[in-house]
Amino acid sequence: MAFTGEEETRLAGLMRAALAGDEAAYAEFLKRAAVFVRIVVRRKVGSSSDGEDVVQEALLAIHLKRHTWRTDEPITPWLAAITRYKVIDAFRRRGRRGEVDIEDFEENLEAPSADTGHERDIGRALDSLAPGQRRVVAALTVEGRSVRETAAALGLTENAVRVALHRGLAAIAARFGRT
């Protein structure tokens, strides 16, 4: 792996702090984890917008499954294992076998485009959510609002926003797991 030593220690430290309730540490962890995940994904699928979809699926999985990391073990093997699983899962859903090199089917891949609007895109998956969840998840993602701003804008309590966000994210992940 490209990340050893220092970055491993930093990622593990941030995640430990995050699991103990430090939200700022968690945001920083996710940013750095995204860099790591992107490297693992690109090694498998190349750098197309396709790859970025898988990066997002992997980040969502890392988030929802963060309790499966053993805090006394290195975190990068855990991140890499989840990412590889999501890469293979993405291939499987497209009717291809996983663990293949990009060269083997390069011609069959969709041309990279600025618009990532096919069925795997998380943005598309938003549309499948119940309206209440969709408004909350959209506010916190594409609109970039905070929980407080979202609560104020939608006339909800902050707690209701948090619940809708969590359920919405879990529903998006479940959709990828099924299809």
């Binding site: 945001a27 996710l30 963060r66 309790h67 966000l165």
Partner: peptide, 22 residues
């Protein structure tokens, strides 16, 4: 959706206590 946007939402969801595997 941009990856930064997703990260923003995931971080906001970070306070939810995950289930305990043990």
């Amino acid at each position: 959706m941009k990856t930064e946007d997703l990260i923003h939402a995931l971080a906001a969801d970070g306070a939810v206590r995950p289930v305990s595997l043990a």
